[in-house]
Design a binder for these strands. Structure first.
Lengths: 145, 145
DNA sequence: CTAGGAGTTGGAGCGCACTCCAGGTCAAGT
DNA sequence: ACTTGACCTGGAGTGCGCTCCAACTCCTAG
């Protein structure tokens, strides 16, 4: 009960904090499950996560940044397939920057349209709610004789 | 080629237009597939679509209104299960109005949060695109010697 | 009478994004 | 030496929202 938490077995000497995190840490920090992290790697969204001497994943800070970006894309409705396309472009190096811009700009436009559409539907929803509320409180005036 | 389109076999005498439409019409007007329309009925989202004498579905104008509303709920991310809950409340009659308000208000809040979240991610996306664009056009000033 | 087209049903199949499982390795603690 | 727990792999399974299929019934036109 009083024992300390196990240190990462391959903590770098002089490492500040969070260098090469094990998968459980990354899962906790990103909110993704360990399974999903492995799945994303298999799916080609993440490449070449470092490994410890015994073959366990060790995520670098840059991996976390990349994951955070992937989460953004996911939260805005991008499919795994499109995220993989972006990841591939990234791997291709600087020459792919124009393509990356295009992919992101297209996605941005999609998101903008999506927001606009949601906003429209939201207004209609509010009208519907108002309608129902007027049904509940019929005549707020003709109440006393 | 000169023959007229077949009239609905059970068109009401004196029907103005669009009374009791066959499924293909409704599919076309709503953008849903015929299969999806039948699926929604099975799933309890639509109840008691009228039938012709030979057992074919005949949608009324009120069914179209209801479908339009369902499409709104769907477009804002509501699950089939929740839409069914709403449909059940509707069937229960006026006593369910408070529950319906609550369901819709909860959903409205979800949608509002979703929009806000999308908006935040959109801003970050735009920043990312800007970043990439600055990579492409390095120094717009130190160009001539 | 026959053929075609639109509709019906129950149920199987699909794509997506995970999620779970069995069986195994490894390192540390007692 | 043994147990424990975190991790590994390949592959199967899940839930959602459709989508497709086969076999059938009707109605109308030629």
């Amino acid at each position: 009960m009083t024992s300390m938490r196990a240190r990462p077995p391959d903590a770098e000497p002089g490492g500040v904090t969070s260098r090469s995190l094990p998968i459980a840490e990354v899962a906790q920090r990103t909110g993704l499950s360990k399974d999903t992290l492995r799945y994303y790697e298999k799916a080609g969204l993440i490449e070449a996560v470092g490994r410890s001497s015994s073959g366990q994943r060790r995520y670098a800070a840059s991996d976390l940044d990349w994951l955070a970006f992937l989460l953004r894309l996911r939260a805005t409705g991008m499919s795994i397939a499109d995220m993989r396309r972006f990841a591939e472009l990234r791997r291709a190096g600087d020459v792919s920057v124009p393509d990356r811009i295009e992919l992101l700009a297209t996605h941005r436009d999609d998101v903008q349209r999506h927001i606009a559409s949601l906003q429209g539907h939201l207004d209609a929803l509010e009208a519907k709610i108002d309608h129902y509320q007027r049904l509940l409180a019929p005549q707020p005036e003709t109440d006393q004789p």
